[in-house]
Design a protein around this nucleic acid. Structure first.
Lengths: 209, 209
DNA sequence: GTATGTTTCAAACAGTTGTTTGGAATTGAT
DNA sequence: ATCAATTCCAAACAACTGTTTGAAACATAC
C-alpha cells in the first residue's frame, strides 16, 4: 500500500510539472514515467488512461485550493454589502493561492499554467470537467461581488471576473519567464508574491471602475 | 505562380484556423492539408517544416497588425505627456485589432488565441521568435505609457502592461466559449466588439491606479 | 509455507506523426 | 513545339504515441 502510494504520487508529481512546462499533448507517458522512475505501464494501471491522469493532476490541485477558498468565502458571506470591498474579495482568492506555494515549490506558477492550458483545450473535455466539478465556488464568488457592488450589472461582473482571471493566469503562469525579462531589463527581481501584491491595486481599480 | 499562391494561402487559412481551435501539437499536417484540399507533401514543399508553417501563420497576422499599430503609435508619439491618457493608449491597441476583424471573420478571436498558445509554448522557440521579431512595438508602447504616467515606476508599467495583455488574450481568445456561457446564463449576447468596449474602462482604471 | 490478491515489468501492439522520395503534371519562356 | 523549372502527388519511411498483455515479483492473510 505504501509502495503503491509512492508510485501514484511520484507519477502525479512528474506529470503536473511536465504538463505545466510543455502541455498535455507535448508530454508523453514515457517522459513522465522516466522522470518519475516508474514503469511505463503503471500509468494505465493506476489511472486507467492518460486523460484520467490529467484529471487526477487537476483534482489534487483543485481540492486543496477550493477547500481553502471555500472557507474564505464563508466568512465573507456573513459580511454586510458595504464591507465587501474589491480588495477584500481579491484577497479571498489570493490567500488560498499563496498557501499552495508553501506546500510545494513553484506551485502557484504550475497551478496557473495548468489552468491556462485547461482553458485553452478548446476541444473542451477538460475545461468542462473543471467547471462542472469546481465551478460552484466561482459562482459564489460572483454572488459576493454582486452583493458588494450592486450598481454593476450581472454581466459586467461576469466579464470583469474573467478579465481578472486572465490577468492572473497569464502573468502568474508565465511569471518565471516574465520575471527573467523584467530582471534583464530593469535589473530588479520580484518573487511571485511580489507580483501578486503589485496586481491587487490594478485589479481592484478595474473592478470598481 | 497564381496556382502556387492559392495553395500556400489555402494552407495558411486552414492552418491558422485549426491551430487556434486545437493547438499546434494537436493539429496534424494531414488534418490541415485535408481541410485545405491540397496534398500532404505540399506543406513541406512550400514551408519546409511544420515549425516553419506555424511561424508563417504568425507572420501573416503580425505583419498586418504591427503595421497598423505602428501608425497609431507614431501619431501618439507626437503628443504632449498630458494628452497621453490611458484610454487613448488603449485605443491605439484596439483599433488595429478591430480592423483585423473586418478582413476575415473571427480574426480577433483567432489571433488572440494564437498569441495565447504561442505564449504557452514554454519550450520557448515560438515565443522567442515572436518577441524577437515584433517586440519592438511593445517597447514603444511601454515608452508612451511611461511618458503619460511618469509617477509609475518602469516595472510597475511593465507588469501592468502584462496584466492587460493577459486580460485581452484570455477573454478575447476565449470569447466564443465565454459568450456562450454568458448567453446561457443571462440570455444576452455580446459581440467581440462589445466585449472589447466593456474591457476598456476596466483596463484604463487599472492602469491609472 | 501455501495460497491469494496486488503491484511491477519487459515486450509487443496497432495507430498516428512529420518528413522524404521519385516520378508525373503543369507552367512559362524561347 | 521544345526545353527547363516549378509544382503536385501517391507511396513509403522511421520514429513515436497510448495501450494491452502475460508473466514475474511482491505483499498479505491463513
Amino acid at each position: 500500500m505504501t509502495k503503491t502510494e509512492s508510485t501514484k504520487s511520484r507519477i502525479l508529481d512528474a506529470a503536473e510539472q511536465l504538463f505545466a512546462e510543455r502541455g498535455f499533448a507535448e508530454t508523453s507517458l514515457r517522459t513522465i514515467t522516466t522522470r518519475a522512475k516508474v514503469n511505463l505501464a503503471s500509468v494505465n494501471y493506476h489511472f486507467g488512461s492518460k486523460k484520467s491522469l490529467i484529471q487526477a493532476v487537476f483534482d489534487r490541485f483543485l481540492q486543496d485550493f477550493t477547500k481553502e477558498l471555500s472557507l474564505e468565502l464563508m466568512t465573507l458571506e456573513q459580511l454586510q454589502p458595504v464591507q465587501l470591498e474589491a480588495e477584500k474579495l481579491l484577497n479571498a482568492l489570493i490567500k488560498p493561492l499563496l498557501s499552495l506555494n508553501s506546500r510545494r515549490d513553484n506551485a502557484i506558477s504550475i497551478f496557473m499554467r495548468l489552468l491556462g492550458r485547461a482553458y485553452a483545450e478548446t476541444q473542451g473535455h477538460l475545461r468542462r470537467y473543471v467547471t462542472d466539478k469546481y465551478g460552484h465556488v466561482l459562482v459564489r464568488f460572483t454572488h459576493l461581488f454582486q452583493k458588494g457592488y450592486p450598481k454593476l450589472t450581472i454581466d459586467q461582473i461576469f466579464w470583469r471576473l474573467h478579465y481578472m482571471l486572465g490577468s492572473m493566469i497569464f502573468t502568474l503562469g508565465g511569471s518565471d519567464a516574465l520575471r527573467q525579462i523584467s530582471q534583464a531589463d530593469f535589473n530588479r527581481d520580484l518573487g511571485v508574491e511580489d507580483v501578486i501584491k503589485e496586481m491587487v491595486p490594478f485589479l481592484a481599480a478595474g473592478m470598481k471602475a
